[in-house]
Simulated assay, not measured.
Amino acid sequence: MSDQKEDLNSDQDDDFQPQTKMRRIGSKKVTTSTSQLDSRFAEKTSTDKVQEYSKGTVCKNTTACNSWAMQTFEAWRSNRNKDAPQEEQVPTDILSTKDSQLLQEWLICFLLEARKTNGDKYPPKTLVQLVCGLQRVLRAQHRSDSFNFFDKADHRFEGLRNALDKVCRELRQEGLGTIRKGSSVFTAKEEDSLWKKGVIALDTPVKLLRAVFFYNGINFALRGGAEHRSLKWSRVTRCSQTTDGLSKVCYIYVEHGSKNHSGGLRDLRHSNKKVTRYANEEAGDSCHVKILDLYLSKLPAGFSREAFY
């Protein structure tokens, strides 16, 4: 009898299968092994990674702006306290105080006295950026009495908002901040000049790369170097489409993220930018499709689609 049990146990070991579970999908039953259930999850997340992700995504420019605002404020505080009596000095812990009235008074002094390193006044927009940077620093301290300097419902800082408004109006009257900087339009004449001077062309690798960079920026509406660096071949598709009753070769670019739409929670309902560029024989060498075709043909076999340049 014991021999029979041993034989049964040995047979069971040989034919042993991982434990399975039944789950219903619609009207069908699906059998899934526990090993498959385990393998679909990622590895355990470390505590450091949890803390990193809990901070969210902060733009590098925002971090730099916060640091610049703090450095400017501390430089002003240090300079103001040099020869001032004790009772007139800015407290070293002023940004940590819970006295909103005291904080408001010193921030107004900062607005009125802050200057560039050359002694010139800051334009209105820069003063607003300074206040915004200081506010973000306060919020990063996870204070229970978080301040919002620009909330009209927060009457604690009504005086700060009034002071900022008055200073900005006076600076405007002085002509500061009246001219807004913006990107100038690249004209067809300037584009033609690049070809004539040989800055961009199709006969050398360097000039071809310049042409690709130039027309990608214009036709794919790429903003700045960051979007060029993040450009990938996996986002660009070459195909044929019918337009105006004719089948034309084209490149379709689908944006995965940009300066204003990084793909966070607020962008879930946002449609990604999609640009289609069709072949244009009349454009000659400046045809974007022709330039990309030539560039693509020169890339080494098995090149990575995770990089464009």
Rank of each mutant, 00 (worst) to 15 (best):
V58C: 09
Q71F: 05
P18K: 00
D293Q: 02
N81C: 02
G198M: 06
M1H: 14
D93E: 08
S10C: 08
V249K: 09
E52P: 06
R210K: 10
D14V: 14
V289S: 01
I291R: 04
A69M: 00
R77P: 01
S2M: 13
L112T: 03
T187E: 11
T243S: 11
F220W: 04
T32M: 10
V185K: 11
G182L: 09
D192K: 14
K248L: 13
G182I: 09
T178K: 07
D48P: 09
Q101N: 15
H155A: 10
S258L: 02
D151W: 05
V199K: 09
S54I: 09
R136Q: 12
W106T: 02
T178I: 11
T242Q: 06
R23P: 06
A307I: 15
T92H: 11
Q51L: 14
R266W: 10
H155F: 14
H270Y: 09
G198H: 06
S247D: 14
G284Q: 07
R161Q: 06
W76F: 04
D3H: 12
C109P: 05
D267Q: 06
R136E: 07
R77N: 03
A211S: 05
K274S: 09
S262R: 13
D293V: 05
N280Q: 06
S2L: 14
L268R: 15
S184F: 10
T34P: 07
W68I: 06
K121R: 14
R77G: 04
T126G: 01
M70I: 15
C59P: 15
Q89K: 08
D99T: 05
R136G: 10
D13G: 07
C132I: 15
D285A: 13
R23N: 08
G159Q: 01
V131A: 03
W233N: 02
V236M: 02
H261I: 01
K21N: 12
F220S: 00
S146N: 12
F214M: 08
K152W: 04
D48N: 11
R229Q: 07
R223Y: 05
F308L: 00
I179V: 12
Q101M: 10
F73R: 02
